[in-house]
Design a protein around this nucleic acid. Structure first.
Lengths: 198, 198
DNA sequence: TTAGAAACTGAATGAGTACTCAGTCAAAAA
DNA sequence: TTTTTGACTGAGTACTCATTCAGTTTCTAA
């Protein structure tokens, strides 16, 4: 019978923090063990390898992120598609702030490197991205039905909007520019990309 | 007196290739030495450390990239600002294809990590990004003078356009989506973001 | 021709690393 | 109570890797 193991959760929590602060390679198992207050062996008792631990962090992020999106869509009503799109962008930016560390981790390159020869990792990334993009896509589809959005390739426009929003998040995390100040311009740009000119 | 050292160039060339293929941590000095056909010691004769070699790759990229932009602007005439912007986007996408490895390296996260406590690295990144963004900005300024582009905050719009274009490049390098197919939508979106509605 | 400097070598070093494993401990099952 | 089993430990192992350095080769200026 499985007994409860609070240390497993603690390890996952500290690993998330350290990986996103310092990256995969600059975080040693010994660092994580120290931060958690656990022996190194304990980490390997719960996770077969460092890479598996790293993937467990991604996996947990994925489930929490996707469920937060479902909750968002289930609990909100929108007047029209364009409003839904704007609300989705705002919600997305909120999430990136709330789950800041893990979005940073997502933007780091190492997951993409692992994904090259690890299908599981690739699927996690794909799931995350498609769930992000699909919110925008659903809004565009709705908007095209109610004519608040002009007829365009929904998939492609959703990708471009996603790219735009996610690019801002990246500029922010890298601290290259103050992305906050771009919020109004972002919304306005999306509107002119999509709005029916009636 | 300094003698010519073809091996230094060869090291830099192979390092660029290996770093962009496998990343910083998965590329050892011994790998680079083997690939170049040089003893490990030779690398440390020319570069004080692995990190310095990594930065030398960035430095070289920066100078070549910036000079290619200057050449582009010096040798082209544009009917109006909007045309200049479209041409700049096309040129930028061309460059990312021509310097594919190095753009991949730029998108990898490790430079940003080093930049956190290495001013030199931070300046390289800043120079690269501002030179990229300034092309778009110049086009927008020109377009506002000749009224092909509506009056907007040039800096912010340039950032958003950059974000959009660069996002596509990233989607491409990560092979998450076929970004080629988005080219037309990209241009069209930029146009509706900027075009005067006259 | 030769001294001296620059370019280059590669074995040795030592710091760090992921991971193993024999064994301890505590709680649940018998 | 005794036995079993899952959770946990941490010293030990095997290995990788950046960096060093004493020495060799190659070039050039005098």
């Amino acid at each position: 019978m499985q007994r409860s193991s609070p240390k497993k959760d603690a390890i996952l929590r500290e690993a998330t923090k350290l990986f996103s602060e310092n990256g995969y390679w600059d975080t040693s198992i010994s660092d994580i063990a120290h931060a958690t207050g656990v022996a190194e062996g304990t980490i390997f008792y719960h996770f077969h390898s460092k890479e598996e631990l790293f993937l467990a962090v991604l996996q947990k992020f994925k489930t929490e992120l996707i469920s937060s999106f479902h909750q968002f869509l289930d609990t909100h009503e929108f007047a029209d598609g364009l409003e839904m799109l704007e609300a989705s962008i705002t919600f997305y930016l909120q999430q990136t702030r709330k789950m800041e560390e893990r979005f940073l981790l997502l933007h780091r390159h190492h997951y993409y490197q692992i994904a090259e020869d690890n299908q599981k990792c690739w699927h996690h990334l794909e799931d995350i991205y498609s769930s992000l993009i699909s919110i925008f896509e659903q809004a565009i589809i709705k908007g095209q039905k109610d004519c608040s959005i002009k007829p365009v390739s929904t998939k492609n426009k959703a990708l471009l909007i996603f790219t735009l929003v996610d690019g801002l998040v990246r500029l922010n995390t890298y601290k290259l520019y103050r992305a906050d100040e771009l919020y109004n311009d972002l919304i306005e740009s999306c509107r002119s990309m999509l709005q029916s000119t009636t």
